[in-house]
Design a binder for these strands. Sequence first.
RNA 1: GGGUCGGUGGCAGAGCGGUCAAUUGCAUCAGACUGUAAAUCUGACGACAUUAGUCUACGGCGGUUCAAAUCCGUCCCGGCCCA
Length: 387
Amino acid sequence: MNNFRHKKINTKNGSLKTPFFMPDATRGFVKFLNNEDIRKTGIVPMVVNTYHLFLQPTMEIIKKAGGVHKFMNYHKPLLSDSGGYQVFSLIHKNPKMGKITDEEVIFRSPASGEKHIITPEKSIQIQFDLGVDMMVCFDDPPPNNYSKEKISKAVERTIRWAKRCLIEYNKQIKKRKLTDKNRPLIFAVVQGGEHVDLRKRCADGLIEVGEEVGRDWDGYGFGARHVDEKGVFLEEILRATASFIPEKSLRFALGVGTPEDIVRCYPMGWDMFDCVIPTREGRHGRLFIRNKQSEFPISNFQFPNKSKKISKSKNKNSFYKIITIRNSKFKKDFAPVDKNCDCELCQNHTRAYLNHLFRSGDPLGMRLASIHNLRFYAKLMKELREM
RNA sequence: GGGUCGGUGGCAGAGCGGUCAAUUGCAUCAGACUGUAAAUCUGACGACAUUAGUCUACGGCGGUUCAAAUCCGUCCCGGCCCA
């Protein structure tokens, strides 16, 4: 299986080999887990969010702390998402929450109601202040069900904003006297919804921006969502979009995804992934379990249908299944969640005990389940890396 | 012994003549979650039936009424107060 490419990236907080998965530590922490928990899962890089950290604890605090790494006391690679996704989904869901213009986005904090303004430049400045190792352009991610016309407009805005981001990025590099060795990597984001031609247009536009500004993007992200309204995996769009991105660049599949989505994306050329699924599903008592250990490598795995929702991955042919530990059938199940798993949960506790923790509503259950799922993802990525 | 308040579905607790198989919460049984406003959200929750619907139900029995969880009588049980 040597037809898969691996890339190595270096940051001031360590190097990474692709493919890798980043859990979402949106507000500077993975819910219920501390750094030691994360370390033991085998997970290294994580994603933090510009929008959330900007609102709370605010940049004043982060700067005083000496940057987000110091604040978190996590000295490994961190990527910050630009906040575009948050601001836009906030306003798309409720137009009263803010206003989008070509120049800027004005929005209200859902928590305090306070008004804030964010621009592409400001997003980049904040991300420099965070001190992250990888950053993402402030983009315009429209819901996939918007009209093609609207998505096309979002593509054009994303390109214009990417240019502003990259110019600001260069400014900050100069101002902060950063070198190629210690500068953060910067990612553009390819929008275009479910339209291949728009994805192509966006990728081309972004490449052109790099040429105009005089700096190549370190990577490109797949923007908006990679599944449609029904949760159907956008196979062709993802494949095509990956092919529009220069080979040497990193390909970051934002928000991807289920284990199956990741395994599908990787051979297409996607290198980096982040998703709330392992931790959120964990908190909700859903645990990932590998099936048929012997049937690997994963590349041999045939996906039966073009698309499936995660809940449907009870499919016997899948390489994993999901159990809902709260279900009454686990009340008296004294086996580990996954007898082949080496995580803290599976090494020490039974399904019956975890069932009890969830029924009791104790956070310990959520913590252990999150650890287990992240360990599942870490092992999955390791297998892909070794393919 | 006297007085008084009360007994409602697994629990708590609404309803106080018809629109009640009965609000709501908890519990229970499932489901959803994909760049985290998510320890969240949704559905089911008397029995039987695929739907229509049928039956049994608001402590027991007996009344009043076209109609009762709701009104009356009585009995049983519980809380509190006075002896």
